[in-house]
Amino acid sequence: MEAFIANFNYWIYIILMMIGLFAMIAKKNLIKKLVGMSIFQTAIILFYVSIGVKQGATIPILPEEAVHPKTTAGETSHHNGEDGDAHAGELPEIDAQDYTNPIPHVLMLTAIVVGVGTLGLALAIAQRVHYHYGTLEETEILKQIQSGQ
C-alpha cells in the first residue's frame, strides 16, 4: 500500500501535466489553450510542493515557545524583547524532521502569483485577437490571415 501511494502521486502529477500539454498543442480555441496552460502550470507547482512533504511532519510555522521561550516566573516576557538574542542559548531543541521543508513553498508561492500575471497578459492578447478577427478559433484566424494576403 505504501509503495502504491508513493507511485500513485507521481503518476497523477504526470497525467495532469500531460493533459495540460495535450490541451496546449491540440485544442483550437485560444481560451482552451490557456486553461491547458493553467493545468500544466499547477501540475508542475504540485510536483515541487510534494517534494517538500515529510512523513509525520507539521506545517513550517514554529510554535511560539520555540521562538520566545517562557522565562522563569519572576521575569516578564517583554524583557526578552529588549535584548533580542540574549536568550538564544536557552531555546528548546527542535528537530528539522518535524517541520515540512519550506524551500519549495517559497519558490512556488511566488510562481503562483506570477502565473496570474502571465494568465492576465495572455487573456488581454486573446481579447485583442478577438477584436481583430472576430473569433477565438485558431483555424478560422489562420484562414482569415491566408485569405487576406
Binding site: 510555522i61 514554529l62 520555540a66 521562538v67 531555546l91
Partner: peptide, 15 residues
Amino acid sequence: YITETRVETEVPNIV
C-alpha cells in the same frame, strides 16, 4: 532554515 530562522530573525513562520 528550519532550525536557525528563529535565532536569526525571530520570525515563527519560516516561509
